[in-house]
Every structure is written in C-alpha cells, then in structure tokens.
Amino acid sequence: MDADFADFVAAKQNGLLRYGMLLTGGDPHTAADLAQETFLRLGRRWRHVRDVEHQDAYARRTMTRLWWSRSKRDRRDVLLAEPEDRATSDAEPAWTSDLWAALQQLPPRQRAVLVLRYYEDCSEKEIAEVLACRPGTVKSQASRGMTTLRRLMGVDDGDPVIPDDSDAAGRTGGRSAHE
C-alpha cells in the first residue's frame, strides 16, 4: 500500500466508521465493511483522490453511494428471505439517545437523505446525484423522514428546508470543518 494512502486510511478510518454507523442506522459490521470497501475504491483512484480538495466529503459520498447500492441489493434479499429469517434480523438497536434511536428507525433512503442534508449541507440536486434519484424524490423523502422523526420525538414543527441549487452555489468550504 502506498505510504500516503496508508496514512490517509489511518487518519480517516474513525470518521468514516462513524459516518457508516449513521448511514446504516447503527450496524457496526456493515459500517466496517463499507469503510473497507470505500477505502478500496479510493485506493484504486488514489492518484486522483490525493489531490481532491475536500477528501472527507469525497470519501463520505463514495461511502454513501456504496451503501445505497448495497441497501437496494440487501432489501431484495430480505424480501426474498423466509419470514423466519426476516424476523431474526429485527434485533433491537442500542438506544443511546432519542434522536439516534429515531434515526435508526427511519427507512434507509430517508435516513441517507437527512444525513447528506444535515451532515454535508447537500442541496436536493447533490443528494439526488449521490442516490441516483430525482430531486423531487429527495424532497419527498426528506419531508417524510422529518415527519417520522417529529412523530418519534414527540415534537411538532415545520418541514425541513433543503436548499435549491442557487443556495448550494453560495456555500463554500464548510463541509470539512466538522471533521
């Protein structure tokens, strides 16, 4: 492994593992697999990735795409599985906070939309590109996700405001500030 890339893996693995936990709703095994696959993808394109300005955001979006592809595939597998198999996969997650518990209960795409929106400050169009869907779908998924969160949290306030592209164009340099 390239020494620069090894340093990159060592420096970023905790952040990516945490992000993987967010995406997967608290599945440590899938989060670890996703982190490994993400680093593998980044390693294959390391000559390009090492010059990327926002490496953290680039890595998280790579992970999100991988996870979404995997989620769609796994969903098909679950639907094909026997009812007994499905029942055993419904283990109660670890509840560390009300918000975390509520996030864990969201459907995968709604959770991904909210994570991309509030972690990355992505616009509808940017989220749609990552999840390979239409901006209208992003908007509806965000709305449903927040509705579910409000219900689970027992609060009542307005819909989320996802910036359109003109809003997104005005944002610069804020994505990696929280790494």
């Binding site: 060592a10 905790n14 982190a35 560390t96 509030y118 927040m146 969160l149 409000r150 405001v161």
Partner: peptide, 23 residues
Amino acid sequence: LEKQLRAFVREGDIPVPHVPDLA
C-alpha cells in the same frame, strides 16, 4: 429539531466500531 439533527449527525455520541486491522 433540524438544529438538533444537524448537531447530532456531526458531533453526536454515536458508537464507532473498533476495527484495528482495517488498514
């Protein structure tokens, strides 16, 4: 709620799996 969500996904206490052999 949105402010709480933003703060939580960025800084919240989320258990991170220990994967010492990831590299």
